Amino acid sequence: MARSTFDLDVRGQLGVREQLALLSLPPRLRRRLLNNVSKRVRTMSRKNIRNQQNLDGSPFEARKNPEKGKKKMEAGLGKLLQVTSVTPDQAVLGWRNALTSWVAAQQHNGTSERRTAAQMKRWNRVPEGLAATEKQAKRLRRLGFKVRQAGKKSLSRPPVAWILEHVNYAQAGLLIRILSEEQSESTGKQSWEITLPKRQFLGASTERDTGLLLNQVLQQILNSPR
């Protein structure tokens, strides 16, 4: 399954002594530990996006057509990245919106697959301030973007208001790129072949780095007042 989250599990990341120290902590402090580590990994991931580099330090592969956009790649995904769940034993860093998570997986892992308009019919309401712009919404309509709206049996071109309510900025950018590239080949398509290179920004560089970060935060919690 394509990776769209960073899963932090304390098992296997700590030595025996550190694991014993961790088990001595109450659940609330173990949750705090994993939450803090996950947020630091989020900071590292966002730094990779700012620097436009992969986990190994290599630069992101450039866009095929640089004129299509000068904004930094994956910037929208970085803003939406958050700790989606945390327990005393495991934390997950990712995206709450299912479509955003799917987009992130394609960007992080690279992909070449066919997606259909019908497969993109399940959308979540977008939080205020993160929606697509009106300019993006109008362009999506011009490009023939269609979805199956509530109460309708067939795919239809949604109004601008629907797009602003259900599609966020990062999603709109990717869909515009997909539809624009396909538009030159054929109009009225209801499926698209998506080919994206790997741009691996999510996570720490290595498991060793994750272990070191986990140990560092553990020591801070052990040495802080309870």
Score class of each variant (00 low, 15 high):
residue 172 A to F: 06
residue 175 L to D: 00
residue 170 A to K: 02
residue 193 E to G: 06
residue 151 G to L: 11
residue 176 I to S: 13
residue 149 Q to R: 13
residue 163 I to E: 12
residue 162 W to H: 14
residue 165 E to N: 08
residue 191 S to E: 15
residue 152 K to L: 10
residue 175 L to H: 01
residue 143 L to M: 09
residue 158 P to K: 00
residue 150 A to D: 12
residue 140 L to Y: 05
residue 168 N to H: 00
residue 154 S to N: 11
residue 178 I to A: 11
residue 181 E to H: 12
residue 176 I to W: 04
residue 193 E to F: 15
residue 182 E to R: 12
residue 152 K to S: 13
residue 138 K to A: 13
residue 155 L to N: 01
residue 151 G to R: 13
residue 138 K to N: 07
residue 165 E to M: 02
residue 146 K to M: 10
residue 182 E to G: 15
residue 158 P to S: 02
residue 183 Q to Y: 13
residue 187 T to C: 04
residue 145 F to Q: 01
residue 167 V to F: 06
residue 192 W to N: 02
residue 142 R to H: 09
residue 145 F to S: 01
residue 166 H to G: 09
residue 185 E to L: 14
residue 165 E to C: 02
residue 178 I to H: 13
residue 170 A to Q: 10
residue 187 T to I: 15
residue 142 R to Q: 07
residue 138 K to D: 03
residue 178 I to T: 12
residue 180 S to Q: 15
residue 183 Q to H: 13
residue 178 I to C: 07
residue 146 K to I: 11
residue 154 S to Y: 01
residue 187 T to W: 10
residue 175 L to I: 03
residue 193 E to N: 13
residue 143 L to E: 00
residue 159 P to K: 14
residue 144 G to K: 05
residue 168 N to E: 00
residue 140 L to I: 09
residue 164 L to R: 14
residue 177 R to L: 08
residue 186 S to Y: 07
residue 152 K to P: 03
residue 189 K to W: 00
residue 193 E to R: 10
residue 186 S to G: 15
residue 162 W to C: 01
residue 163 I to S: 10
residue 159 P to M: 10
residue 193 E to T: 14
residue 189 K to S: 11
residue 179 L to D: 00
residue 155 L to V: 02
residue 148 R to W: 03
residue 192 W to A: 03
residue 163 I to M: 10
residue 139 R to I: 03
residue 174 L to V: 15
residue 181 E to V: 08
residue 164 L to Q: 07
residue 181 E to D: 12
residue 178 I to M: 09
residue 190 Q to S: 14
residue 161 A to I: 09
residue 175 L to P: 00
residue 159 P to I: 08
residue 178 I to V: 14
residue 167 V to K: 09
residue 184 S to Q: 12
residue 164 L to F: 05
residue 185 E to K: 13
residue 154 S to V: 12
residue 152 K to C: 07
